[in-house]
Amino acid sequence: MEFRRLGRSGLNISEISYGNWLTHGSQVEEDQATACVRAALDAGITTFDTADVYANTAAESVLGRALAGQRRASYELLTKVYWPTGPGGPNDRGLGRKHIMESIDGSLERLQTDYVDLYQAHRYDHTVPLEETMLAFADIVRQGKALYIGVSEWTAEQITRGAALARELNVPLISHQPQYSMLWRVIEPQVVPVCEREGISQIVFSPIAQGILTGKYLPGAELPEGSRAADERGSKMIARWMRDDVLNAVQNLKPIAEEAGLTLAQLAVAWVLQNPNVASAIIGASRPEQVVENVKAVGVKLDAELLKKIDSVLEGLVTDDPRLTAQG
């Protein structure tokens, strides 16, 4: 495993993070989820990403039990707040002070820890003054319940405003968690330049485009049993890419992956890690062997000629409109 500094901070995180969106507490039985976490630890992954909304808080509980007994200082724990949790009361969502302060306590209890290393605003809340949100986050840091703060799927303008307020409160904003892959590059035109200026790193999710970039979906073929595209919820998330032109292009990436000595999935993860503003790529897994495979992308250097070949194959299929932030 290799490690990168998160933003303009002293926190090191693993180049590959393990995330449990759509798996723990829902799609994967707990024994299998625990096996995946153990595989991540064995592979040298020290960074674990979750959120209170995943499986309506169950994912945090599963991860807390899976990490029980590990030396707390040996791993970094990331969680998030914003989306509705619990019974859906009027203060059970968003970035108001009440929801934030109550949510961090619930997350810590479920994760069986006294603190998280990074607490993130899962989306931007247009209904709450940003000053209220940032002050609540700063108070959580000062209470020792979180060491650092970050955001997820914010626009460049929102990040700029949030970073300025965080500086005033002496609790710097150090991370942004967006969707990012060969096919989905909406952060490149505006978000990445702003984050470079503000000392903020990306911790990216869906680097293999929710399975599309593994090459397992073939044009005109039946969907693989148990795949995300065959799942009712998952199929809605990847519908935009389940087109013959995209699927054919992905198949055309195989020779490029082979040239680099990688599988398609490894190439996809390695590709996002070529961006110097990316500190870590989050992978999910339903089987331990998926963790073992994806970790092989660590430390891979893709030369400029190979990157040009990738762009040539995907020409006309890449989404890079910054207006689509938070719509991934």
Score class of each variant (00 low, 15 high):
residue 229 A to F: 15
residue 157 E to R: 15
residue 222 E to H: 09
residue 47 T to Y: 04
residue 27 Q to I: 00
residue 135 L to C: 08
residue 202 Q to H: 10
residue 67 L to H: 01
residue 216 K to C: 03
residue 116 V to R: 00
residue 306 L to N: 09
residue 219 P to S: 07
residue 256 I to W: 13
residue 36 C to A: 12
residue 243 R to K: 14
residue 201 S to G: 05
residue 91 N to H: 11
residue 248 N to F: 00
residue 274 Q to E: 15
residue 228 R to H: 09
residue 198 E to M: 08
residue 289 E to N: 08
residue 176 H to Q: 13
residue 219 P to Q: 11
residue 256 I to C: 04
residue 211 G to F: 02
residue 189 P to M: 02
residue 191 V to W: 09
residue 249 A to F: 04
residue 78 L to K: 02
residue 164 A to K: 01
residue 326 A to Y: 13
residue 304 A to Q: 13
residue 224 P to H: 07
residue 42 D to L: 10
residue 46 T to S: 09
residue 40 A to Y: 01
residue 254 K to S: 14
residue 7 G to Y: 05
residue 149 I to R: 14
residue 318 V to S: 08
residue 72 R to S: 02
residue 139 D to T: 08
residue 258 E to T: 07
residue 103 S to C: 12
residue 88 G to K: 00
residue 320 D to Q: 12
residue 72 R to N: 02
residue 132 E to M: 02
residue 13 I to K: 08
residue 60 E to P: 04
residue 113 T to W: 04
residue 205 F to Q: 10
residue 173 L to E: 01
residue 21 W to T: 03
residue 119 Y to A: 01
residue 305 E to H: 13
residue 41 L to H: 04
residue 187 I to S: 12
residue 178 P to E: 15
residue 116 V to W: 01
residue 66 A to K: 09
residue 209 A to Y: 11
residue 56 N to F: 05
residue 296 K to A: 11
residue 214 T to L: 06
residue 145 K to G: 13
residue 167 R to Q: 05
residue 215 G to Y: 04
residue 245 D to H: 08
residue 181 S to N: 05
residue 116 V to N: 01
residue 86 G to C: 01
residue 25 G to H: 07
residue 27 Q to F: 11
residue 1 M to V: 14
residue 162 G to K: 07
residue 36 C to G: 10
residue 63 L to F: 10
residue 101 M to L: 11
residue 241 W to V: 03
residue 6 L to H: 11
residue 263 T to Y: 03
residue 122 H to W: 02
residue 20 N to V: 12
residue 34 T to L: 06
residue 5 R to E: 03
residue 15 E to H: 05
residue 322 P to W: 05
residue 110 R to D: 10
residue 83 W to V: 01
residue 188 E to N: 09
residue 35 A to V: 03
residue 1 M to H: 14
residue 164 A to H: 05
residue 98 K to D: 11
residue 225 E to P: 01
residue 285 A to W: 11
residue 288 P to K: 01
residue 37 V to W: 15
residue 125 D to C: 10
residue 113 T to F: 04
residue 243 R to D: 12
residue 143 Q to D: 15
residue 328 G to I: 05
residue 305 E to F: 13
residue 27 Q to K: 12
residue 312 S to N: 08
residue 123 R to Q: 14
residue 92 D to G: 13
residue 178 P to D: 15
residue 30 E to H: 06
residue 265 A to F: 04
residue 166 A to R: 14
residue 155 T to P: 02
residue 87 P to E: 04
residue 161 R to W: 07
residue 147 L to M: 13
residue 4 R to I: 06
residue 182 M to W: 10
residue 215 G to I: 00
residue 100 I to F: 06
residue 114 D to E: 14
residue 7 G to E: 00
residue 250 V to S: 14
residue 117 D to N: 10
residue 153 E to P: 02
residue 147 L to C: 14
residue 182 M to I: 04
residue 37 V to A: 12
residue 80 K to W: 09
residue 34 T to D: 13
residue 170 N to G: 00
residue 51 A to L: 02
residue 242 M to S: 12
residue 108 L to M: 09
residue 251 Q to W: 01
residue 8 R to C: 08
residue 98 K to I: 07
residue 327 Q to N: 11
residue 61 S to A: 14
residue 243 R to V: 06
residue 254 K to E: 15
